[in-house]
Write a protein that binds this DNA or RNA. Structure first.
Lengths: 163, 163
DNA sequence: TATTGTTATACTCTATAACTATA
DNA sequence: TATAGTTATAGAGTATAACAATA
């Protein structure tokens, strides 16, 4: 068997192109996938809530937010939010109330038990974040968030110009 | 109408919780979504290839890589890779050849035209990256990649310990 | 006319399990 | 027994278009 006929048997032997290793969007993408997977794997026992933790925190901070505003805040079409709220309402996290002054609008709230369970979930979220940023000093984290914010500003400019 | 009855009309009025603004995994997640969306919106005329650019670069750097190794390199199940390769092969980017020494294995290559078109696509990818990191110095980019690599190391440790 | 929430629908992406052929 | 590729299938998650109610 000539060397050219041998078959690669181990991922460790795969050559990663420099272009990818040095690409900030590519690294962010890989990191996001790994971070999200580890989060979902670790945080169990909260039904569908972990994946909507950010959204639930926004509801907590904006009690009675209209569905359309909530959808915009998490960059979803308002039709995509409907099944999510149905699930979270069925699981007891959220409730929707009609608005007296504008009968088109339904306002979203946390239930009392949703509020309480969100505290417990938040502790798990913080623990996960601690794992993710282990070894980074407060200055490192601040630097990282600052650089990510600058990248985010570029993307907002881009969408602002093209929208 | 009492103030409490007024309805929020603008996303700008939504309060973003500090926990989210200061969360590195959450910011990475939002950034990834925005970055990927801007990339797909900008780079057109290359069929399905833009979303698999990273994979195509890995094939380029590892000509003849077995499907199973390629799937591992991009963190996909090997069954998920099959329809992707069927599409890219149908569009003329890739080809698969059986291996003489191990008849189970199919090795993946770029076609000549795939190789040539990948050069043109790469120019678009670089232009997109330039937009994303606009305003960052070489030192900033290096710092950002270094901090992301440290986060990535934490996640690899985590998966290494739990797998 | 425009907005809100909803429904119907379709498409993309992914994993799991089971199969075949080979090793 | 284990591995490589495939197929069938199912489940998220999302968007678009069209609708009724309301502004």
């Amino acid at each position: 068997m000539s060397p050219a006929e041998e078959v690669m048997r181990d991922v460790a032997d795969v050559v990663m192109p420099d272009l990818l290793s040095g690409s900030i969007p590519y690294q962010i993408r890989l990191l996001q996938i790994a971070s999200y997977k580890s989060f979902e794997q670790r945080v169990t026992g909260y039904g569908s809530a972990p994946r909507y933790f950010g959204m639930l925190k926004i509801v907590e901070a904006n009690p009675g937010i209209p569905q359309a505003r909530l959808a915009e805040a998490i960059y979803l079409d308002r039709s995509s939010l409907v099944p999510i709220l149905e699930t979270l309402t069925r699981e007891g996290w959220t409730l929707r109330r009609k608005t007296a002054t504008d009968k088109r609008v339904r306002r979203v709230f946390l239930t009392d038990t949703g509020q309480a369970r969100l505290q417990a979930l938040e502790a798990e979220v913080r623990a996960h974040e601690t794992m993710v940023v282990k070894g980074l000093t407060a200055a490192d984290k601040s630097t990282l968030l600052g650089l990510l914010a600058r990248v985010d500003a570029n993307l907002r400019d881009y969408f602002g110009e093209t929208a």
